[in-house]
Amino acid sequence: MDHPVLHVRDLHVQFVTDTGTVNAVNGVNLQVKRGSTVGIVGESGSGKSTTMMAVMRLLSTGARIGGQVDFLGENLLSLSKKQMRKIRGHRISMIFQNPSTYLNPTKTIGKQMIEPLLYHHLASPAEARRRAVQLLGDIGISNPEKRFDNYPFEFSGGMLQRMMIGMALLSRPHLLIADEPTTALDVTVQAEILWLLKKLQQETGMAMVLVTHDLAVAAQVCDEIYVMYGGEMVEHLPSEMLLKSQAHPYLQGLIQSIPKLSGEKGRLPYIPGQPLGASANRPTGCIFADRCAYRFERCAERPPLLQLGERHEVACWKAGAEVSV
């Protein structure tokens, strides 16, 4: 069997603060195969971004990370700081939600763009410039030679995100982590950026992790989807099964609350209750039980990830029972 590019096993992240310990990620497992796109879906605070930041080891020093993150057979969590630096921006690149705050306002687009090449000694400054200008043109920025010397404030949000993507791909990484890459953009621009990401992925053959709260985006772009809730993985399924065979009541609730264009107009269904706070005492049973309509006695016990089919797992007693019966 083909080895996955990224294999996260039992990842835990805790933040130690003045007011107590926050359990942000609790035992997450996920696999990203070569050339595939994996979506991580969940509401804000579900731990999806934290998971990927932990993979990149970009969390603040106050964070305690446990588990194993295998990238091309190497456990990233056991690398030295220096070894990890050699992976970031070279083997794994990352892009972020709001390109205007994730770029230095006082440095030109070009200088920031070529930094991955310079940091990893992949090209001379002149060669890096040539490659960056070419890539800027390829990803649809007109007049790239001139745009190279612009400052971020002279770019629109969509152009900045294009540039961020270009910056991430300049060093030809094996894996791109895109953390809500379209959330801060206009809807029309969102589609362009997603299309660009997909196109570039096909061209380069890299693997991609797309972190998003938007199920539609995930379904469009990804091959497989992981659903997170309260810092835990509650379901994993191929994206073509998302609308038909979703098993976890939480995911069902999410899909039902998407407004539909066709069909009768009525009150939009929603999931009652509040999402589980990361700092709250974690229940011993199912973490979704408090808000779940299908709750029964067994839910007082924590459900493991139950295999429903090929590449389909769910952490729910009910969904698991239905299959086995």
């Binding site: 970009l58 921006g89 690149s93 994730y102 770029l103 306002p105 920031q112 991955p116 940091y119």
Partner: peptide, 15 residues
């Protein structure tokens, strides 16, 4: 936030 980007690019504390 843009410092996170620099680290994500593989920059060191010196960078």
């Amino acid at each position: 936030e843009y410092i996170v980007t620099v680290y994500a690019k593989g920059g060191s504390l010196k960078n």
